[in-house]
Protein backbone atom coordinates (compact mmCIF):
# COMPACT_ATOMS: atom_id res chain seq x y z
CA UNK A 1 0.00 0.00 0.00
CA UNK A 2 1.16 3.54 -0.72
CA UNK A 3 1.32 6.06 2.10
CA UNK A 4 -1.74 8.05 3.09
CA UNK A 5 -2.48 10.74 0.57
CA UNK A 6 -4.66 13.74 0.02
CA UNK A 7 -7.74 12.34 -1.70
CA UNK A 8 -8.88 15.70 -2.97
CA UNK A 9 -6.32 16.29 -5.73
CA UNK A 10 -4.30 14.64 -8.42
CA UNK A 11 -0.69 15.70 -7.71
CA UNK A 12 1.28 17.88 -10.14
CA UNK A 13 3.30 14.80 -11.06
CA UNK A 14 3.42 12.31 -13.91
CA UNK A 15 0.64 9.74 -14.21
CA UNK A 16 -0.10 7.08 -16.78
CA UNK A 17 -3.19 5.89 -18.60
CA UNK A 18 -4.17 2.52 -17.08
CA UNK A 19 -4.70 -0.03 -19.87
CA UNK A 20 -5.95 -3.62 -19.59
CA UNK A 21 -2.63 -5.36 -20.43
CA UNK A 22 -0.99 -3.64 -17.46
CA UNK A 23 -3.64 -4.54 -14.86
CA UNK A 24 -1.84 -7.73 -13.69
CA UNK A 25 1.41 -5.81 -13.02
CA UNK A 26 -0.47 -3.20 -10.98
CA UNK A 27 -2.36 -5.87 -9.04
CA UNK A 28 0.86 -7.78 -8.31
CA UNK A 29 2.79 -4.90 -6.73
CA UNK A 30 2.80 -1.10 -6.41
CA UNK A 31 4.09 0.64 -9.55
CA UNK A 32 5.93 3.97 -9.71
CA UNK A 33 3.06 6.00 -11.19
CA UNK A 34 2.00 9.06 -9.19
CA UNK A 35 -1.59 8.73 -10.42
CA UNK A 36 -3.74 6.86 -12.94
CA UNK A 37 -6.25 7.79 -15.59
CA UNK A 38 -8.86 5.46 -17.06
CA UNK A 39 -11.22 5.75 -20.00
CA UNK A 40 -14.57 5.89 -18.22
CA UNK A 41 -16.40 3.98 -20.98
CA UNK A 42 -14.21 0.90 -20.41
CA UNK A 43 -15.62 0.52 -16.90
CA UNK A 44 -19.35 1.02 -17.40
CA UNK A 45 -20.17 -2.70 -17.34
CA UNK A 46 -22.06 -3.92 -14.26
CA UNK A 47 -19.28 -6.24 -13.08
CA UNK A 48 -16.40 -8.46 -14.03
CA UNK A 49 -12.67 -8.68 -13.38
CA UNK A 50 -11.62 -5.36 -14.92
CA UNK A 51 -14.01 -3.38 -12.81
CA UNK A 52 -12.96 -5.36 -9.73
CA UNK A 53 -9.28 -4.68 -10.49
CA UNK A 54 -9.93 -0.95 -10.82
CA UNK A 55 -11.82 -0.83 -7.54
CA UNK A 56 -8.88 -2.53 -5.83
CA UNK A 57 -6.32 -0.13 -7.35
CA UNK A 58 -8.43 2.93 -6.70
CA UNK A 59 -7.45 2.92 -3.00
CA UNK A 60 -3.76 3.12 -3.86
CA UNK A 61 -3.57 5.80 -6.56
CA UNK A 62 -5.18 9.19 -7.21
CA UNK A 63 -7.56 8.75 -10.15
CA UNK A 64 -8.69 10.73 -13.16
CA UNK A 65 -11.68 9.50 -15.20
CA UNK A 66 -11.39 10.49 -18.85
CA UNK A 67 -14.61 10.18 -20.83
CA UNK A 68 -14.37 9.45 -24.54
CA UNK A 69 -18.08 9.16 -25.36
CA UNK A 70 -20.17 11.97 -23.89
CA UNK A 71 -20.06 13.95 -27.15
CA UNK A 72 -20.09 17.51 -25.78
CA UNK A 73 -20.50 18.80 -29.34
CA UNK A 74 -23.72 16.95 -30.15
CA UNK A 75 -26.25 19.33 -31.65
CA UNK A 76 -29.18 17.47 -30.09
CA UNK A 77 -27.88 17.53 -26.51
CA UNK A 78 -26.38 14.83 -24.32
CA UNK A 79 -27.40 11.19 -23.89
CA UNK A 80 -29.07 11.23 -20.47
CA UNK A 81 -28.73 7.46 -20.05
CA UNK A 82 -24.99 7.74 -20.59
CA UNK A 83 -24.77 10.67 -18.16
CA UNK A 84 -26.54 8.59 -15.50
CA UNK A 85 -24.13 5.68 -16.02
CA UNK A 86 -21.14 8.00 -15.75
CA UNK A 87 -22.59 9.57 -12.59
CA UNK A 88 -22.97 6.13 -11.00
CA UNK A 89 -19.36 5.22 -11.90
CA UNK A 90 -18.00 8.52 -10.59
CA UNK A 91 -20.01 8.29 -7.37
CA UNK A 92 -18.51 4.85 -6.80
CA UNK A 93 -14.90 5.72 -7.70
CA UNK A 94 -14.88 9.36 -6.48
CA UNK A 95 -12.19 10.41 -9.00
CA UNK A 96 -10.16 13.53 -8.24
CA UNK A 97 -10.56 14.70 -11.86
CA UNK A 98 -13.05 14.05 -14.67
CA UNK A 99 -12.69 15.15 -18.26
CA UNK A 100 -14.25 15.01 -21.75
CA UNK A 101 -13.37 16.36 -25.20
CA UNK A 102 -14.21 19.39 -27.30
CA UNK A 103 -15.59 17.13 -30.03
CA UNK A 104 -18.64 15.11 -30.95
CA UNK A 105 -19.25 11.38 -31.49
CA UNK A 106 -23.02 10.95 -31.37
CA UNK A 107 -25.16 12.02 -34.34
CA UNK A 108 -28.66 13.53 -34.14
CA UNK A 109 -30.19 10.05 -34.72
CA UNK A 110 -28.29 8.60 -31.76
CA UNK A 111 -25.55 6.77 -33.67
CA UNK A 112 -22.24 6.58 -31.80
CA UNK A 113 -19.35 6.97 -34.26
CA UNK A 114 -16.55 6.02 -31.82
CA UNK A 115 -14.27 8.90 -32.81
CA UNK A 116 -13.67 12.45 -31.61
CA UNK A 117 -15.08 14.41 -34.55
CA UNK A 118 -14.38 18.07 -35.29
CA UNK A 119 -16.69 21.00 -34.65
CA UNK A 120 -17.01 24.17 -36.68
CA UNK A 121 -16.08 26.90 -34.19
CA UNK A 122 -19.26 28.93 -34.79
CA UNK A 123 -21.44 30.88 -32.41
CA UNK A 124 -24.09 28.16 -32.78
CA UNK A 125 -21.58 25.46 -31.81
CA UNK A 126 -20.39 27.50 -28.82
CA UNK A 127 -23.97 27.85 -27.56
CA UNK A 128 -24.49 24.09 -27.97
CA UNK A 129 -21.25 23.09 -26.24
CA UNK A 130 -21.87 25.63 -23.47
CA UNK A 131 -25.30 24.12 -22.79
CA UNK A 132 -23.93 20.57 -22.93
CA UNK A 133 -21.00 21.29 -20.60
CA UNK A 134 -23.40 22.99 -18.19
CA UNK A 135 -25.75 19.99 -18.28
CA UNK A 136 -22.84 17.55 -17.83
CA UNK A 137 -21.43 19.41 -14.82
CA UNK A 138 -24.89 19.52 -13.27
CA UNK A 139 -25.70 15.84 -13.93
CA UNK A 140 -22.27 14.59 -12.88
CA UNK A 141 -22.11 16.91 -9.86
CA UNK A 142 -18.50 17.76 -10.65
CA UNK A 143 -16.40 20.28 -12.57
CA UNK A 144 -15.36 19.02 -15.97
CA UNK A 145 -12.02 19.49 -17.67
CA UNK A 146 -12.51 19.85 -21.43
CA UNK A 147 -9.72 18.64 -23.73
CA UNK A 148 -8.58 20.33 -26.94
CA UNK A 149 -8.92 17.76 -29.74
CA UNK A 150 -6.47 16.72 -32.44
CA UNK A 151 -7.95 17.83 -35.74
CA UNK A 152 -7.34 16.87 -39.35
CA UNK A 153 -9.54 19.45 -41.02
CA UNK A 154 -11.08 22.83 -40.33
CA UNK A 155 -14.43 24.22 -41.35
CA UNK A 156 -14.77 27.41 -43.37
CA UNK A 157 -17.55 28.67 -41.18
CA UNK A 158 -15.80 29.81 -38.00
CA UNK A 159 -16.46 32.74 -35.70
CA UNK A 160 -13.63 31.75 -33.36
CA UNK A 161 -10.40 29.87 -33.51
CA UNK A 162 -10.00 26.91 -31.18
CA UNK A 163 -8.07 28.73 -28.44
CA UNK A 164 -10.62 31.55 -28.24
CA UNK A 165 -13.51 29.08 -28.42
CA UNK A 166 -12.07 27.21 -25.41
CA UNK A 167 -11.45 30.46 -23.50
CA UNK A 168 -15.02 31.54 -24.03
CA UNK A 169 -16.31 28.08 -23.09
CA UNK A 170 -14.32 28.13 -19.84
CA UNK A 171 -15.58 31.65 -19.09
CA UNK A 172 -19.22 30.73 -19.70
CA UNK A 173 -19.31 27.34 -17.94
CA UNK A 174 -16.55 27.48 -15.36
CA UNK A 175 -15.11 24.27 -16.81
CA UNK A 176 -11.38 23.67 -16.70
CA UNK A 177 -9.02 22.85 -19.55
CA UNK A 178 -7.30 19.54 -20.11
CA UNK A 179 -4.53 20.74 -22.37
CA UNK A 180 -3.36 17.88 -24.58
CA UNK A 181 0.07 19.03 -25.68
CA UNK A 182 0.30 16.38 -28.39
CA UNK A 183 -3.08 17.44 -29.78
CA UNK A 184 -1.98 21.07 -29.74
CA UNK A 185 1.09 20.10 -31.75
CA UNK A 186 -0.76 17.75 -34.14
CA UNK A 187 -3.58 20.20 -34.88
CA UNK A 188 -1.19 23.08 -35.44
CA UNK A 189 0.95 20.99 -37.80
CA UNK A 190 -2.10 19.76 -39.72
CA UNK A 191 -3.44 23.29 -39.99
CA UNK A 192 -0.11 24.93 -40.85
CA UNK A 193 -0.07 26.97 -37.63
CA UNK A 194 2.41 27.76 -34.88
CA UNK A 195 1.45 25.86 -31.70
CA UNK A 196 3.15 28.50 -29.53
CA UNK A 197 0.89 31.20 -30.96
CA UNK A 198 -2.19 29.10 -30.07
CA UNK A 199 -0.72 28.43 -26.63
CA UNK A 200 -0.51 32.15 -25.86
CA UNK A 201 -4.27 32.52 -26.36
CA UNK A 202 -5.46 29.42 -24.49
CA UNK A 203 -7.03 29.92 -21.04
CA UNK A 204 -3.92 28.65 -19.24
CA UNK A 205 -5.19 29.64 -15.79
CA UNK A 206 -7.94 27.03 -16.25
CA UNK A 207 -5.52 24.17 -17.02
CA UNK A 208 -6.13 21.33 -14.57
CA UNK A 209 -4.26 18.58 -16.38
CA UNK A 210 -1.87 18.04 -19.28
CA UNK A 211 -1.64 15.11 -21.69
CA UNK A 212 1.28 13.90 -23.78
CA UNK A 213 1.25 10.97 -26.22
CA UNK A 214 2.86 9.72 -29.40
CA UNK A 215 1.63 10.52 -32.90
CA UNK A 216 2.29 9.07 -36.36
CA UNK A 217 3.48 10.92 -39.46
CA UNK A 218 1.59 9.77 -42.53
CA UNK A 219 2.61 10.75 -46.04
CA UNK A 220 -0.37 11.37 -48.31
CA UNK A 221 -0.54 12.41 -51.97
CA UNK A 222 -1.44 15.89 -50.72
CA UNK A 223 1.27 16.22 -48.10
CA UNK A 224 2.07 14.91 -44.65
CA UNK A 225 -0.56 14.60 -41.93
CA UNK A 226 0.12 13.91 -38.27
CA UNK A 227 -2.20 11.26 -36.83
CA UNK A 228 -2.88 11.25 -33.09
CA UNK A 229 -2.67 7.45 -32.68
CA UNK A 230 -1.18 7.22 -29.15
CA UNK A 231 0.94 4.39 -30.51
CA UNK A 232 4.56 5.34 -29.82
CA UNK A 233 6.84 7.35 -27.54
CA UNK A 234 6.19 11.08 -27.23
CA UNK A 235 7.83 12.97 -30.11
CA UNK A 236 10.73 15.29 -29.24
CA UNK A 237 8.95 18.49 -30.42
CA UNK A 238 6.02 17.60 -28.14
CA UNK A 239 8.35 17.35 -25.12
CA UNK A 240 9.72 20.76 -26.12
CA UNK A 241 6.18 22.13 -26.30
CA UNK A 242 5.37 20.58 -22.91
CA UNK A 243 8.32 22.49 -21.40
CA UNK A 244 6.97 25.70 -22.93
CA UNK A 245 3.51 24.95 -21.47
CA UNK A 246 4.89 24.15 -17.99
CA UNK A 247 6.96 27.34 -18.07
CA UNK A 248 3.66 29.24 -18.41
CA UNK A 249 1.31 27.17 -16.23
CA UNK A 250 3.74 25.99 -13.56
CA UNK A 251 3.63 22.34 -12.48
CA UNK A 252 0.38 20.53 -13.37
CA UNK A 253 -0.55 16.83 -13.42
CA UNK A 254 0.93 15.36 -16.63
CA UNK A 255 -0.48 12.16 -18.10
CA UNK A 256 1.28 9.88 -20.58
CA UNK A 257 -1.27 8.19 -22.87
CA UNK A 258 -0.54 5.08 -24.94
CA UNK A 259 -3.49 3.29 -26.57
CA UNK A 260 -2.35 1.38 -29.67
CA UNK A 261 0.66 -0.96 -29.92
CA UNK A 262 0.66 -0.83 -26.13
CA UNK A 263 4.21 -1.53 -24.88
CA UNK A 264 5.46 -3.35 -21.79
CA UNK A 265 4.76 -1.33 -18.66
CA UNK A 266 8.43 -0.27 -18.09
CA UNK A 267 8.43 1.53 -21.47
CA UNK A 268 5.39 3.54 -20.44
CA UNK A 269 6.83 4.24 -16.99
CA UNK A 270 10.04 5.51 -18.63
CA UNK A 271 7.93 8.07 -20.51
CA UNK A 272 6.39 9.12 -17.19
CA UNK A 273 9.91 9.52 -15.76
CA UNK A 274 10.74 11.87 -18.63
CA UNK A 275 7.59 13.88 -17.89
CA UNK A 276 8.58 13.97 -14.21
CA UNK A 277 11.98 15.39 -15.23
CA UNK A 278 10.28 18.29 -17.05
CA UNK A 279 7.95 18.82 -14.09
CA UNK A 280 11.01 19.12 -11.82
CA UNK A 281 12.46 21.74 -14.17
CA UNK A 282 9.19 23.67 -13.88
CA UNK A 283 9.17 23.37 -10.08
CA UNK A 284 12.79 24.56 -9.89
CA UNK A 285 12.04 27.50 -12.18
CA UNK A 286 9.01 28.41 -10.06
CA UNK A 287 11.33 28.38 -6.99
Amino acid sequence: MSPARDRATVPAQAGIGLRHPHLPAFLAEPQPAAWLEIHSENYLAPGGPRRAALERLRGDYPLSCHGVGLSLGSAEGLDETHLARLRALYDRLEPELISEHLAWSTTPDGTFLADLLPLPYTGEALDIVTANVGRAQEALGRRLLVENPSTYLRFQEADWDEADFLSELARRTGCGLLLDVNNLYVSAANGGDDPLAALERLPLAAVGELHVAGHARVATPVGELLIDDHGSTVAEPVWTLLRAVLARTGPRPVLVEWDTNIPELPVLLAEATRAEFHLREARDAAG
Binding site: P120, Y152, L153, R154, Q156, A158, P221, L225
Partner: peptide, 16 residues
Protein backbone atom coordinates in the same frame (compact mmCIF):
# COMPACT_ATOMS: atom_id res chain seq x y z
CA UNK B 1 -17.63 23.16 -45.88
CA UNK B 2 -13.97 22.28 -45.29
CA UNK B 3 -11.55 25.21 -45.19
CA UNK B 4 -8.44 23.28 -46.22
CA UNK B 5 -7.34 23.39 -49.91
CA UNK B 6 -9.84 21.58 -52.19
CA UNK B 7 -7.37 18.86 -53.22
CA UNK B 8 -6.78 17.93 -49.58
CA UNK B 9 -10.38 17.83 -48.35
CA UNK B 10 -11.22 14.27 -49.24
CA UNK B 11 -7.96 12.96 -47.77
CA UNK B 12 -8.48 14.88 -44.54
CA UNK B 13 -12.04 13.61 -44.17
CA UNK B 14 -10.72 10.09 -44.85
CA UNK B 15 -8.66 10.25 -41.63
CA UNK B 16 -11.91 10.40 -39.67
Amino acid sequence: LIADPPLQRERRLAVY
